[in-house]
């Protein structure tokens, strides 16, 4: 029997209202670090318990202690200051970092939080990092003047963090690069930086890319040296899967089957259909099933329902096809070094 269609999520879950309020109180100086930290841990535990009870295969800590995914890392590194608010979309805003000097890691950033989450469960918890290209692209640069130098300095910092996570026992490490699909001419820089991040990393390395022009980014995105590329698929109608018929996907895929920017809860059958479409072009042992992106912009209830759909859809298709759920080995796979298929003789 083959194994596959493992369920997971992209990283973030919504913060419960009491934590949202506490973060605002903390920012205003009316709540201490310890009190906030205790609430973050409680919320983390709630999400770990929820994922366990639901039967998710690879868990995340839900990022209860993070704000914006790029700003969180910039706040913890030397060389950045945090700028004012800019708009992301609709009524959503974030504080955008500014590089004002050489950027470098001065201490482990996510390891303690990962260790806490992992201590709560026997199932594997993913280490969650933001990739160097995305941190650079989503920051202002008043120091480098060269995007490449900025990105590669960040790659060295994120590499240190990834290695620390693996040393602490993380079997899966995800390095999110949502900005990677925005500039086709810089995909080689994304790959160059990721080669630094994953160099010698003894864990299943994943990168998550979303909300870009996948058709143009494919198949060059396969040159990014990771074992798995996690893609937002439901929001784009699974269009990219058709390309895999002509140009094979050489890595494992993280298949987004629910749209994270819609309040609508998809039906289990709708998500299962997405998985069945993926199975037409990839074997089950190279498919991980999850939402399109982090669920933090949904309400707690919506996020829970969407995760339930993800898990039940994978379970339904596994039952139909006789697919098991034994987890894969966590080290590097051949897919990490396999890039885009080249024309014969190239």
């Amino acid at each position: 029997m083959s194994n596959g269609l493992w369920t997971t999520s992209v990283g973030s879950f919504p913060k419960p209202p009491e934590l949202v309020k506490a973060r605002a109180e903390h920012a205003a100086g009316r709540l201490g670090d310890e009190e906030l930290h205790a609430l973050e841990r409680r919320a983390t535990e709630d999400w770990i318990r929820f994922q366990e009870e639901l039967g998710v295969d690879i868990l995340v800590d839900g990022e209860m202690y993070r704000g914006d995914m790029a700003t969180y890392f910039a706040e913890e590194m030397a060389g950045f200051e945090i700028g004012g608010l800019v708009r992301s979309y609709g009524n959503r805003y974030y504080h955008k970092p500014i590089a004002v000097g050489p950027v470098r890691r001065t201490h482990p950033i996510t390891v303690e939080a990962w260790q806490y989450a992992q201590s709560l469960t026997e199932r594997p918890v993913k280490g969650m990092l933001t990739g160097p290209y995305t941190i650079a692209d989503w920051s202002f640069d008043e120091h480098y003047g060269s995007r490449r130098e900025f990105v590669l300095d960040l790659a060295r910092a994120i590499h240190e963090e990834a290695m620390d996570l693996a040393a602490a026992g993380a079997r899966f490490v995800q390095i999110d690069e949502p900005a990677a699909s925005a500039r086709m001419d810089e995909l080689p820089l994304v790959a160059e930086a990721m080669a630094i991040v994953t160099d010698g990393l003894a864990a299943h390395a994943i990168t998550h890319i979303c909300y870009g022009d996948f058709m143009r980014a494919y198949p060059t995105m396969l040159d990014i040296p990771v074992d798995q590329v996690d893609l937002e698929m439901a929001n784009s109608g699974y269009d990219l899967l058709e390309r895999f018929r002509d140009v094979p996907f050489t890595k494992a895929i993280g298949l987004g089957v629910v749209d994270v920017h819609s309040h609508r809860i998809e039906s289990v059958e709708e998500a299962a259909d997405g998985i069945r479409r993926a199975l037409e072009v990839l074997p089950p042992e190279r498919i991980f099933v999850d939402p399109d992106c982090g669920l933090k912009t949904r309400t707690v209830e919506e996020a829970r329902e969407k995760m339930r759909v993800v898990v039940e859809a994978a379970r339904r298709v596994r039952a139909e096809r006789g697919i098991g759920d034994e987890l894969p080995a966590a080290g590097p796979t051949p897919g990490r070094t396999l890039g885009a298929p080249r024309p014969a003789g190239a």
């Binding site: 992301s88 870009g212 929001n235 784009s236």
Partner: peptide
């Protein structure tokens, strides 16, 4: 409909 990135920015439009 859904969100799409505006050119190469980190700003999205529906």
């Amino acid at each position: 409909t859904g969100l799409l990135r505006y050119f190469d920015t980190n700003t999205y439009f529906r």
